[in-house]
Design a protein around this nucleic acid. Sequence first.
DNA 1: CGCAGAATTGATACATCTCAAGCTGGGTGG
DNA 2: CCACCCAGCTTGAGATGTATCAATTCTGCG
Lengths: 248, 248
Amino acid sequence: MLNEKTVSHSVECGDCPIRHRAVCARCETDELERLEEIKYYRSFEAGQTVIWSGDRMDFVGSVVSGIATLTQTMEDGRTQMVGLLLPSDFVGRPGREGSAYDVVATTDLVMCCFRKKPFETMMERTPHIAHRLLEMTLDELDAAREWMLVLGRKTAREKIASLLTIIARRDASLNLQTPKGVMVFDLPLTREAMADYLGLTLETVSRQISALKRDGVIALQGKRHVTVPDFARLLEEAGDDSDGGMLA
Amino acid sequence: MLNEKTVSHSVECGDCPIRHRAVCARCETDELERLEEIKYYRSFEAGQTVIWSGDRMDFVGSVVSGIATLTQTMEDGRTQMVGLLLPSDFVGRPGREGSAYDVVATTDLVMCCFRKKPFETMMERTPHIAHRLLEMTLDELDAAREWMLVLGRKTAREKIASLLTIIARRDASLNLQTPKGVMVFDLPLTREAMADYLGLTLETVSRQISALKRDGVIALQGKRHVTVPDFARLLEEAGDDSDGGMLA
DNA sequence: CGCAGAATTGATACATCTCAAGCTGGGTGG
DNA sequence: CCACCCAGCTTGAGATGTATCAATTCTGCG
């Protein structure tokens, strides 16, 4: 409980690693200055819960570094991940009191936060922020719908391949590269977290990863470090059409 | 059911049945007047495709009456419904050229449309519209995430019960009633459409509906007309907690 | 070293899919 | 007016993919 920190020293927005992708991406210099005044940083350690579902949530914010997950849990303990939050992703909903999901840091995590009220006020006065938030929300909705296809209609093997595809893509885009050919990245999730994401059991996840390895679709160094010798082959295994479905 | 044609001429926004829930819900009188100038109605017959995935989409709009579905299809024909569009729901994405999904009218359908360009311009000048669209998109995102839990973790029987729950709730809200006790409504979807929504086969849908009927959770008059003798019992079967999970 | 959490692997159970046959009800044409 | 037709639906029997239960085996770390 004592390992969550509010970092008081300020980082210039101009130097921020998520400056061009986060909710502030469209802001002008003067707008950034006003955001600087109300922002603050919070850090969480891997495994820590950021917010519990139903808890009052008095802030919103962006993931600066690290990874967090959104999950829903049924009374009997079945859980489903419904969001994977990577750097620049936004957490929280303006105009809502409580959190609808559990938010958990799966790696060490740094967030750039705003108290909800001042942020809402700022949003009303700053169309750049509201507009960017709408754009990001629409992107998330598309991602959620893509994921519904994975959950509803894909086989276990395709589900694993789909998840690897997504992680590989996000990793490439952080490095400003186009996903193709040989790709190398780390899995940011445990087998259990992957299972929660994919609607599988962790045993099935493990078996399918072994199968993909056996078939040469991926290679593993340790449990987490993945090499994809041929990205197109992985896409095939995921059942995606080759273009990846990204529309302007 | 012979009333679908009556909308071919212009309807005053003030008298519009979705006036208080659609993307225009927050607009002032003068803003509505400007919307009136650029709006037009389109009607579709049951079964007709409104837009194909990937097609250029030069309009956005709201469902006025009837029901439409958003679906994704894989190359081998597997399909997953990713959205169920009811009156007041918004179709299309400002700032995007093509449609990411197939949109199909499952009943006779009337839509209130705007050419995309004028709508985007209007949106920039009218925070009420942008704000309402953000709110609606966030609601849809929540619904999509709720559906991910259904797809990923619920049994076939729970999936059916969950879908019936949703339809019953919506039906009640149209009649301004609280969902509880005895409820009666019509299924707006075929067994196959229900299967596409739930990530099941139509045979499994049929079997589970029969099972729920056998167990007295529901009663059927014909194939489509449903009576729920005890809504709380249905909620139990859906695996939902009793409050229904709606947060302010 | 040895422990604990994470991951793998195996054997079996079971839910859902698949393939196949038959039913039902509303519309149509002879 | 009836017989037929056909899409939508139901039901059955068997196949199959994933879950479940249960051992091990890794791996990092105190």
